[in-house]
Amino acid sequence: MSIADLRKDYSRAKLSELEVAADPIAQFAIWFDEAIKAKIPEPNAMSIASVGLDGRPSSRIVLIKQFDHSGFTWFTNYDSRKGQEVKLCPYVALLFHWVELERQVRIEGKIERVTAEESDSYFYSRPLLSQLGAIASQQSQPVDQRETLEQQYEIAKQQFGEHPVRPDNWGGYRVIPDRMEFWQGRPSRLHDRVLYTRPEGGEWQRQRLQP
């Protein structure tokens, strides 16, 4: 079978612009809860796409740690490639793909750092070994071999023991959405797409898009 012959018809559910929540965050909460109940592996995994100074996009998978009406939050090394890119262009796109439910959620908006207090709160809630890993890794920087990375980890372990200190270059980002699209797979590729947009200072508006 060729790649072109790989296809699946979607028929699990439908999505109506007349029945979704008026607020996209509330609609996301409904779908996120359903993804958890469906026991989807890592339902909090999302792709984040950013753009460099050269105009070239890059994307990667990260794990969301919080969402509410203030935005979508995750944590990383500020000196990483994505950290450098959002410093230059503070707009990103997020994508959740819950394939078992035949659903996608696309989120676009402006990104900002969370407060130091929020970063501290999450950092110290992590397992000790993960805290040490964040200290040891110079994320996105070249390393000559795996052993060098493991040596950096041992140095961090010896230096901090059971009391790591959050590095200044490690913390949270929050995406403040102004565009959210909910996609539900449907038969014959006539998928349901409901788009929410929010003009600056305005209220959320929603409409159906053609697949």
Rank of each mutant, 00 (worst) to 15 (best):
M1L: 02
S2F: 12
L6M: 13
D9Q: 13
D9G: 05
L15Y: 10
E17N: 10
E19F: 11
A21C: 13
I25N: 00
A26C: 06
Q27I: 03
F28K: 01
A29C: 06
I30N: 10
D33G: 06
A38W: 02
K39N: 15
P41I: 03
E42P: 04
E42D: 09
P43N: 05
A45W: 00
A45Q: 00
A49M: 09
L53V: 06
R60H: 06
L63G: 00
H69P: 02
S70G: 08
Y78M: 08
Q84N: 10
Q84Y: 02
E100Q: 08
R103Q: 12
I107A: 06
E108N: 11
I111A: 11
V114D: 02
T115R: 13
T115A: 13
A116L: 11
S125N: 05
R126L: 11
L129T: 02
A134Y: 00
A134R: 00
S140M: 00
D144A: 15
Q145R: 09
R146D: 10
E147T: 09
Q151N: 12
Q152S: 00
Y153E: 11
I155N: 14
V165R: 14
R166A: 07
P167T: 00
D168A: 15
W170T: 05
G171R: 04
G171K: 01
G172R: 08
R174G: 05
D178R: 08
F182M: 11
Q184R: 10
R189K: 11
Y196W: 04
T197Q: 12
T197H: 09
P199A: 07
E200S: 15
W204T: 09
R206L: 15
R206Q: 12
R206P: 02
Q207T: 12
Q207E: 15
Q210T: 04
Q210G: 10
